[in-house]
Amino acid sequence: MCVIVTARPGHMPDPVSLALMSDANPDGAGIAWHDGHRLHVHRHPDNHQLLAYIHANWQSIENGAALIHFRLATHGAVCLENTHPFPYRLPNGETGWMAHNGIAHAYTHGPYDSDSRNAIDAWQNGETDLADGVNGKFALITSQGEIRWLTGEQALTDGVSVSNTWWMDPAEWTLPYELGYQTALEDLEANGYDHDDLYAQTGIPDWRP
C-alpha cells in the first residue's frame, strides 16, 4: 500500500503522524526536499534511518518543499534499490523524483523488480500518463522544488497532503494481512499499543524542534 506525503514550504507533518506512517509501512523510506537552491534526496531501507535524517534536518526541510514516502513492500525486496522516491527524466528536460502508492498491476513485470519503478519508467518514456489511478497514486517533486500529484491527494493538515490515511488508526491496519503481513496487528498487541502513549510504543521520541 505505502503512503506518500507532500509538504509545501513552511509545513511538515507532525512527528506522531510520521511515526504512524512509518510503523504501518516499515519496508523503507525516503525523502526528496528542496532547500530553495537545490534538491536533496535521502533514502534508506531502514525507516528509522530516514526518520533520524528528518530529525537532523527538520528546520531546513520544513522551510522547503518535500516529498516523503514510506514503503509497504509488495513487489521487490526490501532494499535501497526499491526504496522510493525514484528519479525521473522527461523528454522536455524536466527532472525530479517520484513516489508511488498502491500496486501498479500493469507493471508488475518489467526491467525492475519494483512495479513502481517499472510504471515510472513507462511514464517518463511517454508510454502512459498514470493519471487515471488504475495503477495507484503518484506524486513528484521537480529539481526546482515544484510538487505535483498525478492523481488526487488528500489534505492532512494545512500545506500537507497524503495519498491515504489508513495508517492513522492501528486498529484498522487490515491491509497488511491482505499483503502477507500476518503479524502486524499481533506485534502491536504484544507491545501493548496505547493511543495515548504513541511515542513510547513506536520508540521514537518527540523530536520536532
Rank of each mutant, 00 (worst) to 15 (best):
C2A: 12
V3R: 04
I4W: 05
T6M: 05
T6G: 03
A7R: 06
H11F: 15
M12W: 04
P15C: 10
S17E: 12
S17H: 11
A19V: 09
M21I: 06
N25M: 03
D27I: 05
G28W: 01
A32C: 08
W33V: 04
H34A: 06
H34W: 09
R38K: 13
H42M: 15
H44I: 00
H44V: 01
N47P: 06
N47C: 12
H48I: 14
H48M: 13
Q49Y: 09
Q49G: 11
Q49P: 05
L50T: 14
L51H: 10
L51F: 07
L51R: 13
H55E: 11
A56H: 09
W58C: 08
W58H: 14
Q59M: 11
Q59L: 11
S60L: 08
S60W: 02
I61M: 12
E62Y: 07
A66C: 05
L67E: 03
H69W: 08
H69G: 03
A73N: 02
C79P: 00
C79I: 04
C79K: 14
E81V: 04
T83Y: 02
H84S: 09
H84R: 09
F86W: 11
R89Q: 14
R89P: 00
L90I: 02
E94H: 05
G96K: 00
N101R: 02
G102I: 00
I103C: 11
Y107R: 08
H109R: 15
H109A: 12
D113E: 15
D113A: 14
D113I: 03
D113H: 11
S116R: 11
S116A: 15
S116D: 10
R117I: 07
A119K: 05
D121P: 04
D121Q: 12
W123E: 01
W123R: 08
Q124N: 04
Q124I: 03
T128F: 12
D129R: 10
L130K: 02
A131P: 07
D132Y: 08
G133K: 04
V134P: 01
N135R: 06
N135D: 15
G136D: 04
I141E: 01
I141Y: 04
T142Q: 10
E146S: 03
I147R: 13
I147C: 09
R148F: 00
G152C: 03
E153H: 07
L156N: 10
T157F: 02
D158T: 14
V160H: 02
S161H: 15
T165E: 15
L175G: 01
Y177T: 10
T183D: 15
L185Q: 15
E186I: 11
E186P: 07
E189V: 10
N191W: 12
N191Y: 14
G192Y: 06
G192D: 13
Y199E: 08
A200K: 07
T202H: 10
I204L: 13
P205W: 07
R208W: 13
